[in-house]
Simulated scan of single mutants.
Amino acid sequence: MAARPCVAEAPPPVTLPGTEEHILQAPAGEYRLWLSIPQAPPPPGGFPVLYLLDANASFATLTEIARQGAVRAGATGIGAAVVAGIAYPGEAPYHRARRGLDYTPGPPAEEAVPYPTGGRDAFLAFLRGPVAARVAERCAVDAGRRVLIGHSLAGFFTLDVLARDPGAFSDYVAISPSVWWNRARLEEGLAALRFPGRVPRVALGVGEWEQGLTPWEAASPEAARTAERRGRRAMVDGARQMAERVAASGAETRFWCFPEENHGSVLPVALGRALRFVLSGH
C-alpha cells in the first residue's frame, strides 16, 4: 500500500472568535494583550474587566467560563465582562523567567532561583498604565470594577498587590497562591491593610492535594521528595491563613479548598466559583 502523501501546507489554526491581540512594549520586554470583548452592548457604567495573568495558560479557559456564564447571568451570577489576558511571546503556557521577574518583589525566602526577580512595581505600573489604557480604548469599561486574577506565583503577586496597593484593582482572585515565596511580606502588608472607600471582594482557592501527594503519585520514585517539598511550602495552609488575614482586614472574602484537585487541575474549577463571587450582586 502506497504511503499517503504529506500535506504540503498546514491547515489554518483554530482561533477563538471574538478575541483580539495587541502587542505592547515595556522595559521588561514585549507582552501580548489578549482581549475578549462581549458582543452585547455595554451596561450604562461599562463592562467590568478581568485582568488575567499567565494568559498563555488560561486565557481560553477564562474566556469560555465568562462567556457561558453571561449567557444566563441570572442563573449563574456571572455577568458579561471583558477578559484582558496578559501573555508573553511564544507558545509555552508558562514563562518561568519572565513571570519570576514580573510577579515578585525580590528573591524567594526559601531558595535561590536562576533568573532575575524584583520587577513587581514596574509590572504593576504596566498593568495600571499601558494595559488599562489599551483596554479602555477598545470598549466601554467600568473603571470601578477591575478584577486581578492570578494563579500560583501570579496568585502571590495578586495578594501582594492587595496588601500593598489595594486601590490598584477593585477585586482580587488568588488561586493556589505561592505564599511561600515571601510569607512575611504578605503578612506584614495584610496586617496593615485598611479600606477607606469601597471594600473589595477577595477570592482565594486551592486544591486539596496541593500540600501532599495525589493517590497516583504515592508509588513514584520521587514521592518522598515531592511530599517533603509540598509539605514545606504548605500551599493549603498558606492560602487558608491568607484568607483569614484578608477577612480580618474587612474585605469581603471567600476561601475554598477544592476536593480531589491539585495545583494544575484546580484552576478551571476555581475560576468558575470565583467569577460568580466577584461579578454577582453589584
Score class of each variant (00 low, 15 high):
Met1His: 09
Ala3Ile: 09
Arg4Tyr: 07
Pro5Asn: 06
Pro5Gly: 04
Cys6Asp: 12
Val7Ile: 13
Glu9His: 14
Glu9Lys: 14
Glu9Asp: 10
Glu9Ile: 14
Glu20Arg: 08
His22Met: 13
Leu24Pro: 02
Gln25Val: 06
Gly29Asp: 02
Glu30Trp: 01
Tyr31Gly: 00
Arg32Ile: 03
Arg32Thr: 01
Leu35Val: 05
Gln39Trp: 13
Ala40Cys: 14
Pro41Gly: 05
Pro44Ile: 06
Leu52Cys: 07
Leu53Gln: 13
Ala55Val: 07
Thr61Met: 10
Thr63His: 15
Ile65Phe: 08
Gln68Tyr: 14
Gln68Ser: 15
Gly69Leu: 07
Ala75Trp: 15
Ala75Ile: 13
Ala75Glu: 11
Ala75His: 10
Thr76Arg: 10
Gly77Gln: 06
Ala81Gln: 00
Val82Gln: 00
Ala87Ile: 04
Glu91Tyr: 12
His95Gln: 15
Arg96Asn: 15
Ala97Pro: 01
Arg98Thr: 08
Arg99Thr: 06
Ala112Ile: 10
Val113Asn: 08
Thr117Met: 15
Gly119Met: 00
Arg120Asn: 13
Phe123Cys: 04
Phe126Glu: 00
Pro130Asp: 01
Val131Asn: 02
Val131Trp: 00
Val131Tyr: 02
Ala132Gln: 06
Arg134Pro: 06
Ala136Asp: 04
Glu137Ile: 03
Arg138Cys: 05
Arg145Ala: 01
Arg146Asp: 00
Leu153Pro: 08
Thr158Lys: 03
Leu159Gly: 09
Leu159His: 14
Ala163Pro: 05
Ala163Asp: 06
Phe169His: 05
Ser170Met: 02
Ser170Gly: 07
Asp171Arg: 08
Val173Arg: 06
Ala174Glu: 06
Ile175Asp: 02
Ser176Asp: 04
Ser176Ala: 07
Pro177Tyr: 02
Arg183Gly: 04
Ala184Met: 12
Leu190Glu: 08
Ala191Met: 08
Ala192Val: 15
Leu193Val: 11
Leu193Tyr: 10
Phe195Asp: 12
Phe195Gly: 11
Arg198Trp: 15
Val199Arg: 12
Val199Gly: 13
Pro200Tyr: 12
Val206Ile: 04
Trp209Phe: 07
Glu210Lys: 02
Glu210Thr: 02
Gln211Thr: 15
Ala218Met: 12
Ala219Leu: 14
Pro221Val: 05
Arg225Gly: 12
Thr226Glu: 14
Ala227Asp: 13
Arg229Tyr: 09
Ala234Phe: 04
Ala234Asn: 14
Arg240Glu: 11
Met242Val: 03
Ala243His: 06
Ala247Asp: 09
Ser249Tyr: 10
Gly250His: 12
Ala251Met: 07
Ala251Ser: 10
Thr253Tyr: 07
Thr253Arg: 11
Cys257Gln: 14
Phe258Leu: 12
Phe258Arg: 15
Pro259Gln: 01
Pro259Tyr: 04
Glu260Tyr: 11
Gly264Pro: 11
Leu267Trp: 10
Leu271Val: 08
Gly272Trp: 13
Phe277Trp: 08
Phe277Asp: 05
Val278Lys: 01
Ser280Gln: 07
